[in-house]
């Protein structure tokens, strides 16, 4: 059974996955980009695993160890990608630990990683929006109506995305603060070594350069063909 559902909140997503699990639907695969979840209904009385989400960039060379840590406490990967930070896990057997996090501060850190990443993405989107503004003014100057419309639409989309990621990122960061206050728990001071945001930004910059290069290549081919 396939289900389409978009979430902007790990806790809500996990709560929904728990609900599905209680109804006897086992998570088989996830496409986090298209927000598509595939479930299989388990037999009556059969164990139905819970699913949990980690948000962390794990370099390929560390994947084996990462997976082993989880496997050791009874969790297996359902979705993982080298280009994304979302990691979906499900329990292997009833003997698995109840959750993939054993303290509040690691849940908070997971949400903070996403929040920080969104703020950084927002800056990157704003930079692209500004860059393409140069193209837009150029198109207007050349009274090129196709590119004027194209760059205006593109610019509006980019600005929209930048605003959404800024607001959502901010919400993730502030929501966590509230969570910490609520449980009056000691904050973990050792989160300085977190590399997810750095790795993810590196990945984004690489993709950005590739797409700009591809854009130039396509552009020059088109201008060659059309003379």
């Amino acid at each position: 059974m396939k289900r389409f559902k978009a979430f902007f909140d790990f806790e809500k997503e996990e709560a929904w996955l728990d609900e599905m699990s209680e109804k006897g639907y086992r998570l088989d695969s996830v496409n986090p980009w298209l927000c598509i979840y595939t479930f299989t209904k388990v037999e009556e009385g059969e164990f139905c695993p819970k699913s949990r989400i980690d948000f962390r960039m794990v370099p390929g060379k560390d994947k084996v160890e990462y997976k082993e840590c989880f496997r050791g406490s009874g969790w297996e990967l359902v979705y993982s990608s080298n280009n994304a930070a979302q990691q979906y896990f499900r329990q292997i057997s009833p003997a698995a630990s109840d959750d993939i996090f054993s303290d509040k501060s690691s849940v908070v850190q997971r949400n903070k990683r996403l929040g920080r990443l969104m703020l950084v993405s927002s800056i990157i989107f704003s930079i692209i929006a500004m860059m393409q503004f140069v193209c837009l003014t150029d198109a207007i100057r050349n009274t090129d109506s196709f590119w004027t419309v194209f760059f205006t639409a593109f610019g509006i989309c980019l600005a929209g995305v930048a605003v959404v990621t800024l607001v959502a990122g901010n919400r993730f960061l502030s929501k966590d603060m509230k969570g910490l206050d609520a449980v009056v728990e000691q904050e973990d001071n050792t989160s300085a070594g977190d590399k997810t945001v750095r790795r993810m930004v590196g990945r984004m910059v690489v993709w950005l350069i590739i797409s700009v290069a591809a854009g130039f290549a396509v552009g020059s081919i088109v201008s060659l063909v059309t003379g």
Binding site: R52, D54, R56, K61, V64, E65, Y66, E68, C69, F70, G72, S73, W75, S97, D99, I100, F101, S102, D103, S106, Q109, R110, D188, T190, S191, A192, G193, D194, K195
Partner: peptide, 28 residues
């Protein structure tokens, strides 16, 4: 739990409170 464990290792490596030492198996 595993997620907490893995995060703690990354954090402690970043702070240089722990270090990776050569082992028998390169992947572990």
């Amino acid at each position: 739990a595993a997620g907490t464990m893995y995060g703690a290792i990354e954090n402690l490596l970043g702070l240089k409170w722990i270090k990776a030492v050569p082992g028998e198996d390169k992947r572990r």
